[in-house]
Design a protein around this nucleic acid. Structure first.
Lengths: 188, 188
DNA sequence: TGTATATTATACCGATCAGTATATTTTGTC
DNA sequence: GACAAAATATACTGATCGGTATAATATACA
């Protein structure tokens, strides 16, 4: 692993476990066994490092998510494949997932929010498309694709947060439970 | 308004809009028109100020939430009154709500997470109780009260975040929509 | 009025922050 | 091997951080 990847990996872990604002560049380069100018050579600034982390990880997430969002006419099946894609990614990249979750509700003026914003919008677009297409089959869903996409992602992230804190597993059971709860309710 | 309340109010706004870690004590006392020792006299430390903000606001939230969580046998009605309590509180205290949401997914070792943790647990307990009692009427809900309480609050917070970002209103319509989506699903 | 206590200000502390000027080493290319 | 460019280190900057030592002022009560 080259220095660049090493810096990305260590910074992701430190930012996720302690917070972007409280972790200094010095601590990152110390743990990476390099010096500050090396980091600034690769990423230009602390914010540039954060941007690179977002880009690196979100690109892979969207790559795995895209095929799962193809709507085939069976909404529960599509939602299930989406949830599975998110779960798999979260399990494989728990540190990054925790980091971007921390930015989700952070102040819109903060570095983290700004760095993640464009990537959330891409996720939102993918999910909205699913609910928009599904609205053709389910009349009562019309004009609600935005709120459905947002709350669906919100529910997914709530489950993932449960997992990241050690309270639950992200297995097929949880996936089924989530889709069932979201799409059919807790009574049926 | 005395200096103490002035500090609390200004700190809440600054922490919420710019982030706890990036806002310095100096900026708070400047905007409050006082000096640093005054703030340290009242709150002891920056963390003490944060603790006071959490205590102040969460106490009021729980006070308004408690009566709404009394389960009368009608789960949708109870959930509706809970959502209304949250919505009303969020509308009246948007800055604090944004602040505590920012801490929700922040690193467990961060000051914000630690300051808010005990209060989330109290909310969680109130909500779990509702789903536990409801499980008597709905057999398939047994042993799921924890995940239901967590995802219910997650859905509420997702809606509130939508509101805080200017994308939706927290009116009766949204409340009904949330409860319906959570408890009956998006098809029926 | 005297006195203790609660408030507040001035001026400072050491530590750490993000970032950089300069120089050196490594690496790839001809 | 010559040379350009990429990569890295030492040592530093000014600014800001949370927090405080000391002292002055306002308030409340005897």
């Amino acid at each position: 692993m080259g220095n660049k990847e090493e810096i990305l990996s260590i910074a992701t872990r430190l930012f996720a476990t302690r917070g972007y604002d409280v972790v200094g560049i010095q601590e990152i380069v110390d743990q990476a066994g390099i010096s500050k100018p090396t980091m600034y050579h690769y990423f230009g600034s602390k914010n540039g490092l954060l941007t690179a982390i977002m880009e690196n990880n979100f690109r892979r997430l969207l790559l795995e998510l895209s095929p799962a969002t193809v709507y085939s006419g069976d909404l529960p099946a599509t939602l299930t494949s989406i949830v599975k894609a998110y779960f798999r990614f979260a399990v494989r990249n728990p540190e990054f997932y925790r980091l971007h979750l921390a930015f989700w509700f952070s102040p819109p003026s903060s570095d983290g929010f700004i760095a993640a914003k464009e990537w959330w919008e891409k996720q939102q677009q993918l999910l909205e498309m699913v609910f928009m297409l599904a609205a053709n089959n389910h009349g009562n869903m019309k004009n609600r694709h935005r709120i459905y996409a947002a709350t669906f992602l919100g529910t997914i992230n709530t489950f993932v947060a449960f997992f990241l804190n050690g309270y639950a597993e992200l297995d097929d059971n949880a996936c089924h439970s989530l889709v069932r709860q979201f799409s059919h309710g807790i009574y049926s």
